[in-house]
Amino acid sequence: MSKDTKQKGPSQRMLRVGELVRHALAALFARGEVEDEALRDIVVTVPEVRMTPDLKLANAYIMPLGGQHAERVVEALNRNRKFIRGRIAPQLNLKFAPDVRFFVDTTFDEASRIDELLRSERVQRDLGDDEDQD
């Protein structure tokens, strides 16, 4: 395979299946079907699901509402992976149901960190210098 034909990002199929899995997980969590003490009274959001190219593994990034106890929630979801896979498989209409692994979604933290940097005095001073030169 030449350098030009290598894919830079996920394929359309990977994105489409990732969205299917994300919707199925969100519906499952909304119904409260996963019974685990760590998940009691916790609302879980699923901002993103990334599929591997063979569609056999789904990396689900989750965040509990409010962001509290995220690690504990991820551990509970990973403990119940087989149950979750069995519940979402019929909704996916795929030849093989992907194995789902859960991770804490850190994109909100990263966005906040970038926002904070952009508002910092040092960056504002640099931006002010550019405006003065116009």
Score class of each variant (00 low, 15 high):
Met1Pro: 03
Ser2Lys: 10
Thr5Arg: 15
Thr5Cys: 05
Gln7Gly: 11
Gln7Arg: 08
Lys8Gly: 08
Pro10His: 10
Pro10Cys: 04
Arg13Met: 03
Arg13Cys: 02
Met14Val: 04
Met14Tyr: 06
Leu15Arg: 13
Arg16Met: 06
Arg16Leu: 14
Arg16Trp: 09
Arg16Tyr: 08
Val17Asp: 10
Glu19Thr: 08
Leu20Gly: 05
Arg22Ile: 11
His23Val: 00
His23Cys: 03
Ala24Val: 07
Leu25Phe: 11
Ala26Val: 05
Ala26Gln: 07
Leu28His: 11
Leu28Ala: 15
Ala30Asp: 13
Ala30Cys: 05
Ala30Ser: 14
Gly32Thr: 00
Val34Arg: 09
Glu35Trp: 02
Glu35Arg: 13
Glu37Ser: 08
Glu37His: 09
Ala38Thr: 10
Asp41Thr: 13
Asp41Met: 10
Asp41Arg: 14
Val44Gly: 03
Val44Glu: 06
Pro47Asp: 12
Val49Pro: 09
Val49Ile: 00
Arg50Val: 01
Thr52His: 04
Leu55Gly: 07
Leu55Lys: 10
Lys56Asn: 14
Ala58Gln: 00
Ala58Phe: 06
Asn59Lys: 04
Tyr61Pro: 06
Tyr61Gln: 07
Tyr61Lys: 09
Ile62Pro: 11
Ile62Leu: 14
Met63Arg: 01
Met63Phe: 02
Leu65Pro: 05
Gly66Gln: 04
Gly67Cys: 09
Gly67Asp: 07
Glu71Ser: 07
Val73Phe: 03
Val74Arg: 12
Val74Trp: 03
Glu75Thr: 03
Arg79Glu: 13
Asn80Arg: 07
Arg81Asp: 12
Ile84Met: 15
Arg85Leu: 13
Gly86Asn: 15
Gly86Thr: 07
Ile88Ser: 02
Ala89Gln: 08
Pro90Gly: 05
Pro90Gln: 15
Pro90Asn: 14
Pro90Ser: 06
Leu92Tyr: 13
Asn93His: 10
Val100Asn: 02
Arg101Trp: 06
Phe102Lys: 04
Asp105Arg: 02
Asp105Glu: 04
Thr106Asp: 15
Thr107Arg: 08
Thr107Ile: 01
Asp109Pro: 02
Asp109Tyr: 10
Asp109Gln: 06
Ser112Ile: 01
Ile114Cys: 04
Ile114Ser: 02
Glu116Trp: 01
Leu118Ala: 07
Leu118Val: 12
Ser120Phe: 10
Glu121Tyr: 08
Val123Trp: 10
Gln124Ala: 12
Arg125Cys: 00
Leu127Ile: 01
Gly128Glu: 07
Asp129His: 01
Glu131Gly: 00
Asp132Ser: 03
Asp134Cys: 06
